[in-house]
Nucleic acid binder design. Structure first.
Length: 1015
RNA sequence: GCCCGGGUGGCGGAAUAGGUAGACGCGCAGGACUUAAAAUCCUGUUCCCUUUGCGGGAGUACGGGUUCGAUUCCCGUCCCAGGCACCA
């Protein structure tokens, strides 16, 4: 019998593909293009587990499928090689991050290679390669030299802005900018270089921003908002505090509206779009000035509910509010400033931990512009400085936060909105924040609905000149500097403090002596004095963040070697958008947002001709691990703890020790009795410090009526069908139970294992130690990691690929079950045997029957539909069905098997290539040509054409329901008239029995589907 | 708290336009081949009643509704996973 030897086969064909370069793709082709991309991996040192390649397998299937369907497919891979882990490692060991990175890449590459992916490796890119990052620096330069014109709604050269300044100052300019005062042409002309630079900085798309940043002392760097989770750093979990710092930022807010609008044009999951929408956080409302009583000061506020303005009974300012001090009355000044300083310096954790409202009164009063009543001005950290104007009008009756604050400080609560057809009951027990209500207590707004009142209030505000309609975004400018070593240097030199672009690119990352953060907030680069100080001035020593290189990498694959441009114009035009992007959903507000931002910017500059990078995005689910837990029982009366870390009594008895009170079955008495067990003296452990972990087998637990258990994690390798295989486990490992210290005792009816030795009647007793499985994240710390390497060496890459797809829908998270792979492995064996008769390759040239053709075409239809819809699990089962059916028919006909082989090729590239080779043994060697001439590789063939005529049925077995319950089946020709079907159905014996003489109400006949008789 | 998914056998899952619920695989049970094992093949496997067969009943988280017919559509409840969280 010819064996399917996957080890030999897979090795052989991978080498063959490499030698012949069959996955190399050209930029000029008459074929239609298709661009399938996997998310840029960071090459971590940990290596892959089976969850990582899930998306790669799916995208590889699509890439191969598209190729077989006549597309020129771009399917590249590369590395997001700058990043914190390599640098942290460098700090600890002194090893250059480039070395760590290189090693990690090699491991990664080896693991990818063994899976048989069809990447065109000649296009590999690495963000840490100077030939790559010179273009990241180049794009940064473009951001630096452009501003955003809101009138034309696009980025424009800074030159056009300067021209405007020359003639009109910044009057009549509608630009995305930092807060800036109006100045005239004369002001501009009189300004010195320093002053001009400050002005330009406020308009540049890449600019120096003084912001409150997330400062992580332990990592010595600033973190982006999304890198801070629950107040600690995402990597490492170090505390993060807020700190003022001047650093580079990109003016992403200029694009907020386009980033929002663009979401409607792309085929992404609703959840990712929703996350981005929330992140951008557009809200429409009004900005209204409140005047401070007995003063010239005005406090502008932003509100989305101007309809509630008659209920504004106080104001609240953020602790960081500019001019806060001037505002305070003298007697309140100290208290206010003390509160503000304390609030400013609180870390994120502290702020979040505190849910109770705090604040102090400033002593100042403002005037409610509509009620004209004086209202007190407070300061509190529940108002954020960075959103809106940093000040709010508080409407405690209709805002939960204001309500809480008013309650805490006993401030006035005046309801102004009431539910439709209901009266409001005072005092309010909670804020009424619903948006369906009617205004009252509200002057000219009385009787209006919330929606109408908002409109009306804004009209009134604008008419009286105290404010205007306003749109606000939650989105903040994107911090673009890291005080770290392992990243792209900025192409910036400060000449007399004024940043100037370096023309000569790349600016190479210099060598440093130490990778440690300076602690002063400067990067390790600051210590390289001969690099920092140039004749022109001082270099920028921050480096770019991790997302810089990954925001445009999909363009570089189109033309990775190009030294004149990010990619050649024709290549950019040809490959265009990424048609299918596969990756995890964890990048929703990072990479996926920034890439869209950069794409829109490059589009504005005419560098590319489309403004969304990824047409379709699919997020693969997580593959989870299964943890195996062993229950620990306790005796019901608590007379003895049978398990866990409680101590078992023992006593010294000369050389050996005796363990008392172990419940062990006494066969003669047929019950479990406490027994003492001799423990040989062979340990060097202090007796007092020894804990005995005792586990009893299920039968004993049951018969002793043991209840209540804790669970203890054990290595899943030793679990076979939910039972712990103790002898095997003990043979293989001493680390069976992951306990800090102690020894294990396993008690079953046949005897006991003590400290890995068996004492009992039967050799090789197994017991029945039933385990409990739990689905959990696959991770090293949980000891449940399954690596592709292990699976491949046992079952082969084709089995692994098929199984990962078979597990369930790509986008779902699902647990990895090691037993399940036997199924697909068996399937491949069966599929292999379709081509053989015992030892001999037995494919024949006989004419296929209608039945066999139907099986083939049904499969073509199903698999094509499935791949188009990313439903890979169902196509694997379609292959299984076809193989079972053809096996039953003993069909060994080339007419059937050859097209079937091509169908399977994207899923299982190795075995299909081998069988294809056997099918064309005679002329294969001569005809292996890279571009698909002659017979060549199976992966250069054409997808079989579907012919529906083989699927046409002429009769159908109708399920016959009586009152919606299926009772029988009747076979009728498909072209039979409904009248005739009705007649036959109503004369059928079973049907008559169920009708049981009751009057016929109705009969529904859906041709080719169902018959339902209603009585 | 808010937003977005989801809930189908012992398990992973299928049902692609409202039309035979449980495809395919795992596991389990039984059988064939074999000196034996492995491999392979065959049969059964939602639950309950009946059990010799025939048959009957219930059933897609729960409670309602629309419909000749609902896993699929609508309303309410519960549970699970993910995201956001003082954004005025």
């Amino acid at each position: 019998m010819s064996q399917y030897d996957f080890i030999e086969i897979e090795k052989k064909w991978r080498q063959f593909w490499l030698d012949k370069g069959i996955y190399k793709v050209e930029n000029d082709s008459p074929k239609p293009k298709y661009y399938v991309l996997d998310m840029f991996p960071y090459p971590s040192g940990a290596g892959l587990h089976v969850g990582h390649p899930l998306g790669y397998i799916a995208s590889d299937i699509v890439a191969r499928y598209k190729r077989l369907n006549g597309f020129n497919v771009l399917h590249p891979m590369g590395y997001d090689a700058f990043g914190l882990p390599a640098e942290q490692y460098a700090i600890q060991t002194g090893q250059h991050p480039s070395i760590t990175t290189e090693n990690n890449i090699q491991t990664f590459r080896r693991q990818l290679d063994q899976m048989g992916f069809s990447f065109d490796w000649s296009r590999e890119v690495r963000t840490s390669d100077p030939n790559y990052y010179r273009w990241t620096q180049w794009i940064f330069g473009l951001f630096f030299t452009h501003w955003y014109n809101k009138k034309t709604n696009r980025a424009e050269s800074i030159e056009t802005l300067i021209a405007h300044f020359e003639t009109a100052g910044n009057v009549n300019l509608d630009a995305a900018s930092s807060d800036i005062l109006i100045f005239s042409a004369e002001d501009w002309q009189n300004a010195d270089a320093q002053k001009r630079d400050h002005i330009l900085n406020d308009y540049r798309l890449a600019f120096m921003d003084e912001t409150t940043v997330n400062w992580c002392e332990a990592l010595g760097t600033v973190l982006a908002n999304e890198e801070v989770v629950n107040g600690v750093s995402e990597r490492g979990g170090y505390p993060v505090v807020r700190k003022k710092m001047k650093q580079w930022a990109l003016r992403i807010t200029a694009y907020a509206d386009r980033l929002l609008e663009g979401l409607n044009t792309i085929d992404w999951t609703d959840s990712i779009k929703e996350i981005q929408r929330n992140w951008i956080g557009k809200s429409e409302g009004a900005e209204i000035d409140f005047t401070v009583a007995e003063s010239e000061l005005k406090i502008p506020i932003f509100t989305t509910r101007p309809d509630t303005i008659f209920g504004a009974t106080f104001m609240v300012l953020a602790p960081e509010y500019e001019g806060l001090e001037i505002l305070c009355s003298d007697d309140r000044k100290n208290a206010v400033m003390e509160y503000a300083n304390k609030a400013k310096n609180r870390s994120e954790i502290e702020r979040m931990a505190d849910t109770k409202k705090t604040g102090v009164f400033t002593g100042a009063f403002a005037t409610n512009p509509f009620t004209k009543k004086p209202i007190p001005v407070w300061v509190s950290d529940y108002v954020l400085a960075g959103y809106g104007t940093g000040a709010i009008m508080a409407v405690p009756a209709h805002d939960e936060r204001d309500f809480e604050f008013a309650k805490a400080f006993d401030l006035e609560i005046i309801p102004v909105i009431k539910p439709i057809n209901e009266e409001i009951i005072e005092p309010l027990s909670e804020a009424f924040s619903a948006k369906d209500g009617i205004c009252f207590n509200s002057g000219f707004l009385n009787g209006l609905s919330v929606k109408d009142a908002v409109k009306r209030a804004i009209e009134e505000v604008e008419k009286s000149g105290i404010g205007k309609k306003k749109i606000n975004y939650k989105l903040r400018e994107a911090g673009f500097g890291r005080q770290r070593y392992w990243g792209e240097p900025f192409p910036i030199i400060f000449e007399n403090g004024i940043p100037k672009l370096v023309k000569e690119l790349p600016v190479i990352l210099p060598e440093v002596e130490s990778y440690k953060p300076s602690g002063t907030g400067e990067s390790p680069l600051a210590a390289v004095t001969n690099w920092v100080h140039t004749p022109e001035g001082k270099r920028e020593t921050d480096t770019m963040p991790g997302w810089a290189g990954s925001s445009w990498y999909f363009l570089r694959y189109m033309d990775p070697e190009n030294s004149n441009a990010i990619a050649d114009k024709t290549a950019l035009n040809y490959w265009n958008q990424v048609d299918l992007y596969v990756g995890g959903s964890e990048h929703a507000t990072g990479h996926l947002l920034y890439s869209r931002f950069w794409t829109k910017f490059l589009f504005d500059l005419g560098i590319i001709s489309w403004d969304e990078p990824f047409k379709k995005l699919v997020n693969q689910g997580m593959i989870q691990g299964i943890g195996e837990l062993l229950p620990r029982y306790t005796l019901e009366d608590n007379s003895m703890n049978m398990a866990g870390s409680s101590r078992i009594e023992y006593e010294n008895s000369g050389e050996d020790r005796i363990l008392r009170n172990l419940y062990i079955e006494d066969q003669s008495l047929n019950q479990f009795i406490p027994q003492n067990i001799m423990l040989p003296r062979n340990r060097n452990v202090e007796e007092d410090k020894v804990f005995w972990h005792v586990y009893v087998s299920e039968d004993i637990a049951n018969s002793l009526n043991l209840t209540g258990f804790a669970k203890y994690r054990i290595e899943s390798n030793f679990v076979e069908n939910d039972f712990l295989d103790i002898p095997q486990a003990i043979l293989t490992s001493k680390k069976l139970i992951n306990s800090e210290f102690g020894f294990n005792i396993f008690v079953c009816s046949d005897g006991v294992w003590i400290n890995n030795k068996f004492y009992g009647k039967i050799e090789n007793a197994v017991g029945n130690f039933k385990t409990i499985s739990e689905v959990e994240k696959m991770s090293k710390s949980k000891d449940n990691v399954i690596t592709p390497d292990d699976v491949i060496s046992k079952y082969g890459a084709d089995s692994l690929r098929l199984y990962e797809m078979f597990l369930g829908p790509l986008t779902d998270s699902k647990p990895w079950n090691t037993h399940g792979i036997e199924g697909v492995s068996r399937f491949l064996g069966k599929f292999w045997r379709l081509f053989f008769d015992g030892e001999n390759f037995a494919v024949n040239e006989e004419k296929a029957t209608a039945e066999e053709l139907k099986i083939l075409h049904k499969t073509i239809k199903k698999v094509s539909w499935d791949i188009d819809n990313m439903s890979f699990n169902t196509s694997v089962s379609a292959f299984m069905v076809a193989t079972n059916e053809l096996g039953q028919l003993k069909c060994k006909k080339r007419e059937i098997l050859e097209p079937l082989l091509i169908l399977l090729a994207p899923f299982a590239p190795h075995i299909t290539e081998e069988l294809w080779d056997l099918l064309h043994q005679a002329n294969i060697q001569a005809s292996h040509l890279p571009q698909g001439e002659g017979l060549g590789s199976i992966h250069l063939q054409s997808w079989p054409a579907l012919d529906e005529k083989y699927l046409v049925e002429n009769s159908f077995s109708y399920p016959i329901s009586i009152n919606g319950k299926t009772r029988t089946q009747l076979e009728f020709p498909l072209d039979m008239e409904t009248a005739e079907i009705e007649k036959q159905v109503l004369s059928d014996e079973t049907v008559l029995k169920w009708i049981d003489g009751k009057p016929l109400k109705k009969i529904i006949i859906v041709k080719g589907r169902i018959v339902n008789v209603v009585v």
